[in-house]
Design a protein around this nucleic acid. Structure first.
Length: 279
DNA sequence: AACCAGGTCATGA
DNA sequence: TCATGACATGGT
């Protein structure tokens, strides 16, 4: 077991960070958050300014939870209206996570047109079917399947994982990326627009999934994923006033507004809006 | 029983 | 470039 003391001027909330819908393989049980990240399992808890965990070194924890970033500076940069101000207050300490790139990519293909419990079930079934089994604190876990593991399976296997029509998307993307050496580097080194276009050439990745992947796995904070919730919030709160009188506007317009209004960290702002969405 | 969920794709104008 | 409908699945 290891621990660290958070800096007093750098807010962090494990609960908001893991509960805001950006990751799908974390569970809160008996006072601990239990998670599977790529091929490792870990558990972690927060008591005030103390983080205690098992299953990773401190370097991993700091990187994974973005403890190296100046959060007040980030939230301050987009704290520009009463609505986002309230969301920042409600989700105080929420940090974006640095997700494994491959896992994040497949996860958000699995996420389309589904609710969060269904996404979680799908990914768990996928890991059980094709992931590597290992033991952590005496219990069995399944890591996230490698590109080769998915690329080598058949459509029926993925259908058994409740992928529905996404099965062929997952398989196709796995086959493509499995043959490319270090595909992440090209995305990582590209500007946001180019990276987004490249990702969208993969089956099952449209504008929304691409933005989630760029935001959560490539730290391109200018990405502003628009799902049904964010679309609703943006139209009601920022674009056209009341729900009754609003006229619909395109996602591209919403995105432009978001980047102009919230600035270069608008992706971070998006996650605060999403995290605070249930009132 | 329709409708919805962290949407995307194929089609047709 | 844009609307429109289909699409697997499970919950409400």
């Amino acid at each position: 077991m290891q621990s660290l003391e958070l800096e007093s001027d750098q807010p962090f909330s494990l609960h908001h960070t893991l509960n805001c819908g950006q990751v799908f393989r974390w569970d809160f049980r008996e006072g601990w958050w239990h998670g599977i990240v790529g091929d490792r399992a870990l558990k972690i808890r927060q008591d005030g300014d103390t983080l205690t965990w098992n299953g990773a070194d401190e370097e991993f924890i700091r990187a994974y939870f973005q403890l190296d970033l100046d959060l007040p500076k980030i939230t301050g940069s987009f704290d520009r209206d009463p609505f986002i101000h309230a969301a920042i207050g409600r989700c105080r300490g929420l940090r974006l996570i640095r997700q494994p790139r491959w896992e994040c990519t497949i996860s958000y293909i699995c996420a389309t047109n589904s609710n969060i419990p269904m996404i979680r079930k799908r990914i768990e079934l996928l890991a059980r079917a094709l992931g590597t089994k290992f033991t952590f604190e005496g219990k069995p876990y399944f890591g996230f399947p490698s590109p080769d593991a998915i690329a080598g399976c058949c459509n029926a296997t993925l259908t058994e994982c409740k992928m529905g029509y996404r099965a062929s998307y997952v398989l196709d993307t796995a086959c493509r990326l499995a043959r490319v050496n270090d595909w992440e580097r090209g995305i990582s080194e590209s500007q946001y627009d180019d990276a987004r276009r490249t990702l969208m050439q993969l089956k099952g990745i449209g504008p929304k999934a691409a933005d989630c992947i760029l935001l959560f796995a490539f730290q391109k904070f200018e990405a502003f994923p628009i799902d049904v919730w964010i679309r609703r919030i943006m139209q009601e709160q920022y674009l056209n006033g009341s729900a009754a009188s609003r006229t619909l506007c395109r996602d591209a317009e919403i995105q432009k507004f978001a980047r102009d209004h919230f600035g270069p960290y608008c992706g971070y702002a998006q996650e605060y809006l999403y995290g605070a969405r249930l009132g």
